[in-house]
């Protein structure tokens, strides 16, 4: 039961998100707006509760399967991929390494200089 209720709540927040996207003509997707709405609701309520905890743990534990169907669609671009595979591969690897390294270092430096930390937080 916990899962069903939690799942229903997630769908409702996504639905609210989709509604706001249309209403305010937002460039982001409904689920991303749904995160903000649900987070705001949790802050107001002050606790998460078992249904949402159960549903989120289950779904987030299997996040990767949900990317499979859309990614298989790369098949449809076989010709383009064959023509430009080297450029695409090098771009993906290069840009990903640059981003991972630069953002991790930036967080690390910015925190060192801008945030006073006590042992208790770590």
């Amino acid at each position: 039961m916990d899962f069903i209720l939690g799942f229903a709540l997630l769908l409702i927040f996504q639905l609210l998100g989709e509604m706001l996207v249309i209403f305010f003509e937002l460039p982001v997707s409904g689920p991303v707006v749904g995160i903000v709405l649900l987070l705001a609701a949790l802050i107001v309520k002050g606790s998460v509760g078992k249904p949402l905890n159960t549903a989120s743990t289950t779904l987030l534990g299997h996040l990767s399967i949900m990317f499979v169907p859309i990614s298989v669609g790369l098949m449809a671009h076989f010709e383009l991929l064959m023509n430009e595979w080297l450029a695409i591969t090098i771009t993906l690897i290069g840009s990903t390494v640059i981003m991972l390294a630069s953002t991790a270092l930036m967080m690390s430096f910015a925190s060192k200089f801008l945030v006073k930390e006590t042992k208790h937080d770590l």
Binding site: F13, S29, G30, P31, L42, V48, A55, L60, L114, V115
Partner: peptide, 29 residues
């Protein structure tokens, strides 16, 4: 299965909520 990506994305609000005190501290970085 693709559809589940929606509610799964929304559910990220829950771990975010649990970490809120840590996130607030690091807001500027």
């Amino acid at each position: 299965i693709h559809f589940l990506l929606g509610p799964a994305t929304v559910s990220l609000a829950i771990p975010l909520y649990h970490q809120l005190h840590r996130i607030k501290k690091l807001l500027v970085p």
